[in-house]
Design a binder for these strands. Structure first.
Lengths: 159, 159
DNA sequence: TCTTGACCCTGTAGTTGCTACAGGGTGTGC
DNA sequence: GCACACCCTGTAGCAACTACAGGGTCAAGA
C-alpha cells in the first residue's frame, strides 16, 4: 500500500510516517516505478506498535528499545519490565504534580470576587503579592520543598 | 544588579533571563560601561512574575498576556479570569488522561508473570496482540471513544 | 488530448521553552 | 601578570512532530 493508505490505517499523518522512517523506527519500504513508497503488512504492524507505545506516553527512544526487544524474542525480558516501570513512575509523578497545580490554580481563581478592573482583580493582586512577599502557595516553603517545586525545571508544564 | 545576581535571586538560569529578554517578556535593561546588563527592582519583579506563571504551568504567550493586564491596571479583568479558566481546564484534562494512562500501564505491567524471554513475556505478547487484533484497552473501542484517544495528538505525552 | 485534483516526492524550517556551546571580552584577587 | 569567575553575541540542539515550498505522478472526466 502507499503512504497515504498506511497513515489512514493507523490514523496518523503522512508526515509522521516519513518522520519515523527518518528516525529509523520504520524500515525503509520498497519503491514502485514512480518512486512512491510501497508498504507491506510488517510495516503496518510496526507502525501500529509505535503509535501504541506513543499512546501509552512512551518516548521514541523507549519505543526503539521495545522494537529491539521485539526483534530479539529470545533475549531476557527484564528490560521490557524496567521500561514500563520507568513509565509508570513518570506518570505517577506527573499526576501528583498536576494535582498540586490544580489546587493552586483554583485557589487563585477564587481570588477574583467580582469582575472589575485589573488593578482590583484579586487574581492579579495575588500574582503580584507572590512577587513581593513570596506568600503564595508556590513560594511559601523553601526551595527544596516547594509545592510544584522548581517545576519549571523538574516537570516543565506539558503542552 | 548584573544578570548572574538576578538569575540567582529567582533561581533560574542566566541563559533563561536572556531568552526572556529576546522574547520580549523582560524589558531590555541598561548597560554599564562594559556592556554588561544592569537590572533594577522592576526587572526582578517582572522576572518573578514570569517564573511564577511558569510554575503554574502557564505558557509564555499566556504570561505575556498577564503582563499586559498588569501594565493596564484599569482595564477589564475578565481576561485574567478567562486565562486561568483555560489553565484549570487544561490541567484537569491532563489529570484525567494521565489516570487512564496509569491504569493501562499497570495492567500491561501485570502481564509479565515471570521473567523469561522477550518472546514469552506477557507484556510483549500484549503489545503485539494490540497490533494484531486491537484488543488492548487502548484500541478496544472505536476511534471516537478510545481511552487515551488519538492522544498522541490530543495530549502528546509530556516530555 | 487536455485538465483538474488528489496524491506522492525531497528538503527545509517552524513549533516550545529553554539549554549548551563557541569564541571572545571584562573584572577582581593574589 | 595570571587565574578564574563572570559577562557578551550568536548559533545550534533537544522532542516529536507539523507545515510549507517546489516539484512529480496518476486517474478520472470533458
Amino acid at each position: 500500500m502507499r503512504i497515504g493508505e498506511l497513515a489512514k490505517q493507523v490514523d496518523c499523518d503522512v508526515e509522521t510516517v516519513r518522520y519515523y522512517e527518518r528516525e529509523g523506527l520504520l524500515a525503509e519500504p520498497e519503491r514502485d516505478q514512480s518512486g512512491y513508497r510501497s508498504y507491506g503488512v510488517s510495516h503496518l504492524e510496526t507502525l501500529q506498535f509505535v503509535r501504541h507505545g506513543r499512546s501509552l506516553g512512551m518516548k521514541l527512544v523507549e519505543i526503539r528499545q521495545l522494537l529491539n526487544f521485539r526483534h530479539h524474542p529470545d533475549g531476557d525480558c527484564s528490560g521490557v519490565d524496567a521500561l514500563l516501570d520507568v513509565q509508570i513512575k513518570r506518570v505517577e509523578e506527573q499526576i501528583a504534580a498536576m494535582g498540586t497545580l490544580k489546587e493552586q490554580l483554583i485557589a487563585l481563581r477564587g481570588e477574583c470576587e467580582q469582575r472589575q478592573t485589573n488593578r482590583g482583580c484579586g487574581i492579579m493582586r495575588s500574582l503580584n503579592q507572590a512577587i513581593q512577599v513570596r506568600q503564595c502557595p508556590c513560594h511559601r516553603e523553601d526551595k527544596g520543598t516547594r509545592a510544584v517545586t522548581s517545576p519549571v525545571k523538574a516537570h516543565p508544564p506539558p503542552g
